[in-house]
Amino acid sequence: MTVTEITAALERDGIAPLPRLIAPEALAGLQAAFSGALRRPSFNTWIGFEQNEKWRLLVENLLALHPACLELALHPLVAGAVREYVGPEVALTEARGWRTIRTTRNFHGWHADAWHAPEVTTAPREVKLAVYLSDVESGHFAYLAGTHRQRGAARHWGPADVAPLMHRERAMRGPAGTAFLFDTAGVHRQTTPCLSPRDVMFFNFHDPAVPIQAEDVAHGRYQPLLLNAGYLPPLTAEQAAILGFGRARAQPEAGMVGRPALRRYPWLHDAMAAGLWARLEWQEVARMARQGRRFAARRLARLIPGVARPSSGAARPAKEAHS
Rank of each mutant, 00 (worst) to 15 (best):
A273H: 12
L18G: 12
Y231Q: 00
R173G: 03
L30D: 02
P164Y: 03
E60L: 11
R173E: 06
R125M: 11
L262M: 09
Q213Y: 03
V136I: 13
Y143S: 09
G152S: 08
A79F: 02
T122L: 03
R198V: 01
G146K: 09
L276W: 00
P310Q: 02
T2W: 09
V285A: 14
I47P: 01
S196K: 10
Q31E: 13
R249N: 02
P193Q: 13
P164R: 01
E5N: 08
A145E: 15
L92I: 03
Y231S: 01
D161I: 12
R149Y: 05
G146W: 09
A91C: 14
E84H: 07
V187E: 10
Y143N: 03
N106E: 13
A209C: 10
R151P: 00
R83V: 01
L225Q: 10
H148S: 11
I304F: 07
T2N: 15
A64K: 11
S312D: 10
Q251R: 06
L38D: 03
Q239H: 14
I6P: 02
P234C: 06
A130E: 00
A214I: 05
P266F: 02
L226R: 13
M256E: 11
H219C: 06
A271R: 11
R168Y: 00
H116V: 01
V217C: 07
L74H: 00
A145T: 15
W277I: 15
L129K: 02
Y143I: 11
P310I: 05
T93N: 12
S134A: 14
P310A: 03
R99W: 01
D216L: 15
L70C: 04
P17A: 11
E71K: 11
H167Y: 00
T236V: 08
L280R: 12
A114K: 12
P211I: 01
T192K: 07
T7M: 00
V82L: 03
V200R: 01
A301L: 06
L232H: 09
G109D: 08
R287E: 15
A28V: 06
E126Q: 15
T236G: 15
L21H: 09
E71C: 07
D270Y: 07
R40E: 14
L165C: 06
G313R: 05
G292N: 12
T7Q: 01
W98I: 00
